[in-house]
């Protein structure tokens, strides 16, 4: 196989390619057009691009082939779509670019789009966000549903896209750069609680897969593996990818939040009270 075969999509999805092109297009054009002082630094642009590119790579290159026929590669794919990619994108703080484009939207359109904002706010209730984040992992790893998702092309795409979109929502909620003391973003204490809960719940599932004696996900057995790997090894590796890295990311997230909370401690103390009153 040539290099090109590895870079070309295994299962070509025009909608996916179009979405990624639009995201990168809007980001790039926004960067060029926005005022110098708002523009994110090189590191942030790099983090954003890297986050988008790795998500694209696991969806529209040869990687996707291995993800379809190997359980542990599939877990790696979801680790990137649901964790690493969205984390990089959220940490890169694309808010200035989004604000730049938002200001370009006409007031009429803004009014039409308002229900979308309400929907977003409902999804970003911490309890719902946590439920969606962990619930989706459990849902797609429910053995009978996982079996169907790997058999049906449509379900497979729904699965991967839902993981990516939910990952973006969740990690944006967690890494929202706006200080909660003076904006409506989630308080640091709650962010840390959500992260801890998400970490523990994922560890339960990961541990269950790792310590399962039977084959939990036999679809890879039934439909053939990409190469002849021992099924138990495949399941063990996949379980570990569900078990360890997400838990580590929760802890890293908590540390990051602690650091931010300590930096901002007392900084906004005077403003927070009156603002809360006026907000109500």
């Amino acid at each position: 196989m040539s290099l090109l075969d590895y870079l070309l999509p295994y299962d070509f999805s025009p909608l996916t390619i179009l979405s990624y092109m639009l995201v990168m297009g809007f980001y790039g054009v926004g960067l060029f057009r926005m005022p110098e002082q708002d523009r994110p630094g090189a590191l942030r642009i790099f983090a954003f691009t890297l986050g988008v590119m790795i998500c694209y790579a696991v969806m529209q290159t040869r990687f996707d082939y291995y993800a379809q026929y190997m359980f542990f590669v599939h877990r790696g794919q979801h680790l990137i779509l649901h964790h690493i990619g969205p984390i990089l994108i959220a940490l890169s703080n694309p808010l200035p670019v989004m604000r730049f484009w938002f200001e370009k939207i006409s007031p009429g359109w803004r009014r039409t789009l308002r229900p979308l904002g309400w929907f977003y706010q409902v999804l970003q209730q911490p309890f719902i966000a946590l439920f969606l984040f962990v619930g989706l992992i459990y849902f797609w790893l429910w053995p009978s549903i996982h079996f169907d998702a790997m058999l049906s092309r449509d379900l497979y795409w729904v699965m991967n896209w839902s993981m990516l979109l939910d990952g973006l929502l969740f990690w944006w909620l967690i890494f929202d750069p706006r200080p909660p003391a003076i904006t409506s973003s989630l308080g640091y204490g709650r962010r840390m609680l959500v992260l801890a809960a998400a970490g523990v719940l994922q560890m339960f599932l990961g541990a269950w897969i790792v310590f399962s004696r039977d084959m939990v996900y036999d679809v890879y057995e039934v439909c053939g593996r990409a190469w002849p790997l021992d099924p138990e090894v495949d399941q063990l590796l996949g379980g570990m990818l569900t078990y360890i890295p997400p838990a580590m990311m929760s802890i890293l997230g908590i540390l990051l939040m602690l650091r931010r909370a300590m930096h901002q401690d007392g900084k906004y103390a005077n403003q927070s009270k009156p603002l809360e009153e006026t907000a109500s």
Partner: peptide
């Protein structure tokens, strides 16, 4: 939604094929 693959052939030219 299935795949198949070929193992390396042995000295006699026989090889295993993984399939659904």
């Amino acid at each position: 939604r299935t795949t198949f693959g070929y193992d390396e052939p042995d000295p006699d030219g026989n090889y295993a094929v993984s399939h659904s």
